[in-house]
Design a protein around this nucleic acid. Structure first.
Lengths: 223, 223
DNA sequence: TTAATTGTGATAGTAAAGCTATTAATGTAA
DNA sequence: TTACATTAATAGCTTTACTATCACAATTAA
């Protein structure tokens, strides 16, 4: 399926809406590739400017700094996930099936769950896994939270949390379990690839490992 | 209890061992306060140099860059945790009690579990919670892993994992559960403080919340 | 005792990163 | 046609990140 996603993005994320001009779209789309290749620490607006044949100052007209651009990309992912979850579970009858589907999406059995878009989705996933929690793990978290920039993440957790409640209304930690599911899925995809001794992955179970672990974790908590 | 911890720190972490000179100890001890106050992104060797009345170049004689200094601090914490766990569980008979004790330590019911040291322990904890996973969430993770700089973290997970196995030998994800326990404890301490809607914390359960959630998560997984 | 060696921190840089004030060009409205 | 507003480019500045070299003191060697 090919769709043109357009989510309501919090205007505090940018100085000028990058969706509304060709240069803006070039900035976002090329930054996704560049951040993925270099990592956010080595990524600079200068390098991006060179890549898209414009000047640094032009990029500063759209984004306050590279951290805001990263948050823009990660926000886009949160909205995308929210949308994808709705899309995937709408025809499933049982809460259990819906939860299983969410776990599948987060474990990235990608071929089946991916929706394509204008952006390089594989690069966005890698960015979110490696850089995602840097958008809140810093000293300005409270100020950024005040202007609602983490709302899409909270909404996503709220959605998953409600499903958990539907499945087992006596469970006391549904929000925590939802955020833990999202965070643990990202970390585990990173660990299985880079630090496998922090997991129990091996050659045989490689493809399904993260999915199995997350299913075990979530359903044992909920039952 | 007051103790003078001295762990075997991997020599790749520094250019010159900071434990072996007064200036080296000043560098580490003051960097802990400064990184805690500024965050690793705003922390610079120049600011640290000003604080300790020496030059930037002096600091560069000890540490390659601020990321290595952060990894030094986080490594110190991993060793400390490993030591503290041994110290706290040695007199406990049952695996269940031992696991409960580890969860207590990680939930930071601090007053009881803290061992004091030359360094500002409260600052180290805050650094680990906010900056800890930045030491591996980057593009050079594989090179750093090759020179064994994550070994103390892996050893810590191995220790916790073995306890899980003793408690329930049929559980298949003991390493994953160990790393998830450590990571989730850090994230949840951060969330309850800064992004409470990602959890189910409230005014009444505030103090014990993280501990309850982690206990529920771990023992349901293991039973 | 003097000369050579070694280990230390200080000085003084450079290149890149991060950001901004000003100017120039283009499009729109009166 | 002129005034105004929007947008990008130019050129800069400050800070960060890092390094080459120097100076000094302690140690050792002749």
């Amino acid at each position: 399926m090919v769709a043109n996603f357009s989510f309501h993005i919090n205007p505090h994320l940018f100085k000028k809406n990058p969706e509304e001009s060709a240069i803006g779209r070039e900035i976002v789309s090329n930054s996704i590739d560049l951040i993925n290749n270099l990592g956010i620490e080595n990524f600079t607006f200068k390098k991006l400017a060179t890549k898209i044949q414009h000047t640094e100052a032009t990029i500063y007209r759209y984004f306050e700094n590279k951290q805001m651009l990263l948050l823009y990309i990660v926000s886009w992912y949160w909205h995308y996930l929210d949308f994808l979850i709705d899309y995937k579970i709408q025809n499933l009858a049982e809460p259990k099936q819906k939860i299983q589907e969410i776990i599948s999406i987060l474990s990235q059995n990608l071929s089946e769950t991916k929706l394509t878009s204008y952006y390089n989705m594989a690069a966005i996933f890698e960015i979110v896994i490696r850089e995602g929690n840097k958008v809140y793990l810093h000293t300005e978290v409270k100020e950024i939270n005040k202007i609602q920039l983490y709302k899409p993440y909270k909404d996503l957790c709220e959605k998953i949390s409600l499903l958990f409640q539907t499945y087992n209304s006596s469970y006391k930690f549904s929000h925590s379990l939802a955020s833990t599911l999202v965070e643990t899925s990202h970390l585990h995809i990173f660990f299985t690839e880079n630090l496998p001794r922090l997991t129990d992955v091996n050659e045989e179970n490689k493809n399904s490992y993260t999915h199995h672990f997350l299913s075990d974790l979530i359903f044992k908590s909920l039952n």
